[in-house]
Design a protein around this nucleic acid. Sequence first.
DNA 1: TGCGAAGCGGACCGAGGGTCCGTATCGTTG
DNA 2: CAACGATACGGACCCTCGGTCCGCTTCGCA
Lengths: 204, 204
Amino acid sequence: MPERKPRKDAARNRKAVLVAADALYARCDNPEDVTMADIAAAADVGKGTLFRAFGDRTGLLRALYEARFEPLREAVEAGPPPLGPATSPLQRVPALLDAVLCFKLDNRPLALALEESGSGSPYRTEHYARWHGLLQAMLSRIPGVADGDFTAHVLLAATRADLVEHLAGHEGIPRERMRARLADFTAGVLGSPTPRTQGRSGDG
Amino acid sequence: MPERKPRKDAARNRKAVLVAADALYARCDNPEDVTMADIAAAADVGKGTLFRAFGDRTGLLRALYEARFEPLREAVEAGPPPLGPATSPLQRVPALLDAVLCFKLDNRPLALALEESGSGSPYRTEHYARWHGLLQAMLSRIPGVADGDFTAHVLLAATRADLVEHLAGHEGIPRERMRARLADFTAGVLGSPTPRTQGRSGDG
DNA sequence: TGCGAAGCGGACCGAGGGTCCGTATCGTTG
DNA sequence: CAACGATACGGACCCTCGGTCCGCTTCGCA
């Protein structure tokens, strides 16, 4: 058992940092001007404590993200339809994408901060791998979808934090319209007949 | 006339910086460890000169990008089919996307550096606006494509530098296969029948 | 109550983008 | 060709920010 139970003050401080950071990211326009020092100050904690608890900036962002994501993760892993496992791919794929979109709409600065986080692309994340894998599995069970792997990447790209930020924040597109657009697009992708370029799908 | 002709040495230095930076970005793995000081040193120029000529890091990146992009831009604006204006949307959209993909494959570190450039999202760029506008115009002339605006965003998202980097670099997918995947996906999007969710496309 | 281990915190560090200003060069005018 | 303003050079300098270090404190077990 590599897990050693943390000391009480450590646990309290960790919590305080999460709460403070959450608040800071919730009420900020540009997530880049929330610095680690700001978070430490807001949590009434030294910078050392902050880095001890989360390793680095990305670690903290991830912890925040996971914490917020938890309910959705559970709903997907063991919840009722349309998100849960007992759903046909044709229903579940749009539901998953809609859920991701809503999540990013509800957590814009945080999602933005994490995806822009200099350290490493958002694609080399366990989090991304899980969602991509799930989507791909669903897509591969839908006849007419040519390449589940690539399609999953593109559908997820349609919900990237900075695109969402651009559409919702800069262009002012309302939430329900964005959801409808994504739903329409997804339906188009799922419902399309076999592409006309069948002949090249196996080359390389 | 706001344009004043630059002094000769200034023009020469500007060129030298572009050449040096181009070379540095061409042969690097992680574009983040090409620093402004590196570029200045490689161009045998002071940092001040570099910033005087390009304003800031993003300015330099943009200048580099535009320079490389120039041929493609011309081909699109006034070239022969399938990229040029005298092409039916159904042919031109896939051609445009393929061209963008190829460009990013051929200029991976540079594209990555520019799109990751902290200052501002890639969506608030004149460059992006132009491509999005063009794509949208084409898409709106294709019957069966529900929302040209959103579709254009998503199709462009499918060619984002970090996704391309992930697929080509990390997963090792060969160039021709990526092109085929994108072509298939695009064909699916363009050729799909009206989505089943017609009823909601106007709400919001 | 004593004592090691775990944690704390903020001074400190290095990197990197961007600025400043004394000096050098340009190119124009007489 | 000489002189002189305008323009540009360059690199020392500054600032911010992520991340580290280490002497001091607190925890919690016996």
